[in-house]
Amino acid sequence: MIYQIRKDDFLSWLKKQREGKKVLVPTRKEEGYLFLPWVGDELDLREYTNTLKPVKDVFFPQWETLIRYRVEKEKSGEIVEETSRTEPLILFGVRPCDAKSIKLLDNVFDGEKYKDPYYCQRRKNTLIISLGCRELGPTCFCQNIGINPLSSEGSDILLVEFEDRYLAQSGSDTGLEILEQAPFTPAESKEQKIFDELNGNPARLNEAEFRSLALNNMPDFNDSVWEKLYQKCLNCGICTYLCPTCHCFDISEMTLDSEGKRVRSWDSCMYSSFTLHGSGHNPRPTGKERIRQRIMHKFNYFPQNYGVIACVGCGRCVAECPVNFDVREALKLLGVWKDDLQL
């Protein structure tokens, strides 16, 4: 079922949501678009393909204080305050690839085995309104790995720009509830047809096909191809920190005198310190092992564990890598990228 709303009406609706909720929108900054709190001014989405930083940091911030504690002499330590941030939030303008990435992260932080209270709380309090891509950016490759740039997967509401309107599709029950009320109206069969047409050419390859390639064709752990692959990588953390699905973290204690806090922060498998043991031994001593880990985790281990590839084709790692390490090229070299697809 497709709904529709005039753009102006949508913006006034969104503006009204700011009462009681924080609304984050893609905001143009010097370095690129970032999700920032909306003050209600005119949205400038003219050159918006995607935000510089992925949307994951809304749910899983780069660093956060988990607990604060105090230790006094001859007393056992006590937790002073458990931080909880429960501010209701609306995210507008998330791209379908990023929305999908949140779905992938749910496997890790809101899965059957583990539930991360910090993540889950933010997830519960956030409404994701995504904006489908009518055009792809220069480094986007979602379609090549089986992801539809007009999919509502992972969003509560998907909007697709069409003339002076947004066509809307729900991706969750919460989304549907909103769409069923004014100012959204059910679309006529004409709009329904347009939506289907836009959606007619989704992925060039389906996800299952790509997944089976990745699971079956991935070279052996000790294959010499890894040797070739890593040479130009300088092991910075850009690709992991800007990746919407990378989710490795570290927990450290920051203490001063008798007070302290436990902080969780992003970590990156690209750093040598990531796997450094207390003994001084490092099981991933060079870039070779680290690149292999990164690629294997996304395209082999994650699908083995959760049945889905941990890459959404947003292309941030390709666009921002200082040495132009291109994951598409890497996959091609590994025999996982289908040859007939152009770079």
């Binding site: 780069q62 300088l234 092991n235 910075c236 953390g237 992991t240 920190y241 800007l242 040495v323």
Partner: peptide
């Protein structure tokens, strides 16, 4: 405050070669 501590500035720099 924009910095995300990816250490790309350090890692591309030929003058930065400390083992740790």
């Amino acid at each position: 405050s924009k910095c995300i501590r990816c250490y790309a500035c350090r890692n591309v720099c030929p003058a930065c070669y400390c083992k740790e």
